[in-house]
Amino acid sequence: MILGILSLQPLTWPTVATALALGGVYALMAVGIGLVFGVLRLVNFAYGQLIMAGGYALAYGSLWNFATWQSILLCFGVVLVLTVLMDRLVFRPLRTSSPTVMLVATFAVAFLLQNIALLKFGPLSKNVGSLAQLNAPWDIFGVQIKEIAVLAVVTALGCLFILQLLLTRTPLGLHMRAAAMDFRTARLLGVRANRVIGAAVIISGLLAATSAVFLSVQENSISSTFGLQDTIIVLAGVVVGGMNRPIPATLGGFSIGFATGILGGVLPADKTQYLTSFIFAAVIVVLLVRPNGLFTRGGGAVERV
């Protein structure tokens, strides 16, 4: 393994572009997971299954000969409905439980949705059809870069910018940040709990749908385990970055996506199967050195007794 690391492949521009795109998509997922965690203290393991549902929506859209925008609309619709259902049926009854119980519950929901998909859509993977044309390379200053990579980076930046405006410039954003800091005090000061939680859930659903579009195009093969591994990696990234604040969480998601992309490109061909090990080993090391998060300042939240 050590010798394998020494004989790395050279870093190329397409690799950097792919890594940036993956980082961008993972950053969006990280925001979606981080927002819900902020207001609900809930780590949503089932986030990947929202993305899977979106992927299937796109695949069926192309199967039914929908236009691209119709497929994407269908994807957003399906993901949003599923997000709201998940919140109403599972997360709301569990709102007062301990974080561990909620985490295990989302684990159960993830497993449930995955198996429903397996039962409903079968074990064979589906592809997203016409959308896959976005994988065609663009010629930018003599470098071949996939169209989707550019789109992903631009969209991610756009979404994050809008979200930042929403969080810092609107009353709703203020309420959400207040709720993320201290839910009980925020409620005492007149923040309406259901509105804030509803907003966080819907925004996280929108981000899941956006991520679903990009991930589906990049991988172009939707199966019941689609999005599962990505979610696990993003969750690790979010915790590594710092779960309590949106910006560290986003940076964490981006870094882990970027690192995965770069490592995937530079590892020698016979070592790429150990990519997961390298990434998670790095996660463990960072957690041990900075348990409160890589991008948080100070000692982080003090544990209350």
Binding site: V43, I232, L235, F280, V283
Partner: peptide, 12 residues
């Protein structure tokens, strides 16, 4: 959470 994710990393 850090413990949860770290043990998950071990599994992976």
């Amino acid at each position: 959470l850090a413990a949860g994710i770290a043990t998950f990393a071990v599994l992976e």
